[in-house]
Nucleic acid binder design. Structure first.
Lengths: 114, 114
DNA sequence: GTAAGCTATTTAGTCATACTATATACTAGT
DNA sequence: ACTAGTATATAGTATGACTAAATAGCTTAC
């Protein structure tokens, strides 16, 4: 699926939060998981800006650990604020996606034949 | 639901296209329909920028008609390109929303107990 | 030993899109 | 006159994902 960039705005951060909530992980791995999910065009730089924002907003704890596969990794875990943020994200997602699906499938009104 | 702005980026235009596809309508009425849908904070200016973009991209036909309720209305209908654009939008939406729902509900992997 | 390739973080700058806030204008009711 | 509802239009802002690249560590193959 190409050119879904704009549609990912406002949801990619939530996806990253969800991935982190499943257990300690780091930027590069998060990117790979998003790509596996189907968002194949997501690159490291994009995820980096998101994790930086999470750091800045104090939604994550950070621990730097060495890796045998390359340079040290910055591992993220959600803190309480991050957990709360994630729950709010899913509530917003449920709301927005249900409304859009409603629009998509709604019986046409005003006597329109369908 | 407050502060869903960012989540609407990339989908609001599609919603407007869908609303127009159901029959000739104009900016002010589109705004009201979006508000009725549940996107209560959408204002005329926002919809205007979208309809302007639709015009610029030649996705709509335009007809100006007088109104007894106020100034003349600019009625929009979808042309063939607009119809096609709408179909692509729904395909993208189905893809993205299914992937996000998948992430939301996916069984936790890597031996994580759920 | 060095080049290539994967791992991994970081940064600078761009673009698209929804937002705020306001101006304009027409009609109806007080 | 003035307010309120209808209706289009515009200037400027903020957000967030993008491109493109630099830097660095480790492994494998030549």
């Amino acid at each position: 699926m190409e050119n879904i960039t704009e549609m990912l705005k406002g949801v990619l951060e939530g996806c990253v939060l969800e991935i982190i909530s499943r257990g300690e992980t780091y930027g590069y791995e998060i990117t790979q998981q998003l790509r596996e999910l189907g968002f194949t065009d997501v690159v490291e730089g994009t995820v980096y800006t998101i994790t930086m924002r999470l750091e800045k907003n104090n939604l994550v704890n950070i621990e730097k650990k060495p890796s045998t596969m390359g340079p040290p990794r910055k591992f993220y875990t959600l803190n309480a604020a991050g957990q709360e943020h994630l729950e709010i994200f899913w509530k917003k997602w449920d709301f927005v996606s249900s409304k859009i699906d409603e629009l998509k499938t709604k019986i046409k009104s005003k006597g329109e034949v369908i």
